[in-house]
Computed example of a mutant assay.
Amino acid sequence: MALSESLWQQAAQLEQAQQLLVQVAENLGSYQGQDWTDEISASRRSVQSAQLSINAGIEAHIEDDQCIHDWLLQSLANAAASSLVDGALVERIGRLLPDAVWIKRHAAPNEDADFVDRHRHALLIGKGSRIQCDSLTLGLMVMAPDVRYPFHHHPPREFYIVLSEGEWYQEGCGWFRPGPGGLVYNPQSILHAVQSGTGPFLALWGLMHT
């Protein structure tokens, strides 16, 4: 009985992941001239399996980080209430959050460590998460007000679906504000950064590994 229930939970989790990827593809459309629908569809096909254990909820992951938890709930509520943000996308994110793996990035030797305890990433799909996907890592980033996530770069291409106010930096473009519902694309290995404003920050990000 317990095994059957676990398998049912696993199937339900994978279905939620599939539906979230559908919403991601719809939001990206043909942004930056790329066929995101085909790329995300490939990622949907590569979603393989989830762990059988289902965690109790968000609090079980970030119970020692009450402020982060509060900022998460506030920013999710703001996104859901915004006419500029895709409500279906926010709903799909919310359904996967209870089983997300929460991580934080540590500061490099040359970086201000102030950001470390004031941000978190919820890994939803792909590397480090409970749902395997070789072509895409999908996560939710939450930050406290007045935090700058350091300048950095990485080989995978990256997109953001913006769910709150915030500022992005991209090499060659400088700082800009896409606004809630906006999109950001970071080409391979380009220098970039992000910072929150006077309110909490929320964005869905994806790293494309192909």
Rank of each mutant, 00 (worst) to 15 (best):
A122P: 11
R95A: 12
G94H: 02
V90D: 03
A107E: 03
G94R: 09
W102A: 13
G87A: 12
V101N: 08
E111Y: 09
V116S: 06
N110V: 06
L84P: 02
D117Q: 07
H121P: 04
E91Q: 15
L84I: 05
E111P: 04
D112C: 03
D99Q: 15
D99V: 14
S83L: 07
A80L: 07
R105S: 11
I103L: 06
H106S: 02
E111L: 00
D112M: 00
V85T: 13
R120H: 01
V101P: 00
D99K: 12
R92I: 01
D99A: 07
P98D: 06
D99E: 14
P109N: 10
R118K: 14
H119Q: 15
V101R: 13
V116D: 01
G87Y: 08
V85R: 14
P109L: 02
L97S: 10
L84W: 08
D114G: 11
D86G: 09
L97V: 07
A79W: 01
R95D: 01
A107D: 09
I103W: 02
F115I: 05
L84S: 08
G94D: 12
A108I: 05
V90G: 04
D114S: 15
A80N: 07
A107S: 15
H121T: 05
L84E: 09
A122H: 12
F115H: 13
R105T: 06
G94S: 11
L96H: 06
L96Y: 08
E111F: 05
A113V: 13
D99F: 07
A107G: 06
H121F: 14
I93R: 04
L97K: 14
S82N: 10
V116E: 04
I93W: 09
D114Q: 11
R92N: 12
H106M: 11
P109Y: 12
R118C: 09
S82G: 04
E91L: 04
D112V: 04
F115L: 01
V85W: 05
R118P: 02
R105K: 01
I93H: 02
A122Q: 13
A88P: 10
A113R: 09
D117V: 07
A122F: 07
D86R: 04
A108S: 04
R120S: 07
A81H: 05
D112L: 01
A88F: 07
D114H: 06
H106I: 00
R120F: 02
H106L: 03
F115Q: 04
R92Y: 07
V116C: 12
G94T: 08
L84Y: 06
A113S: 15
D117E: 14
R95G: 13
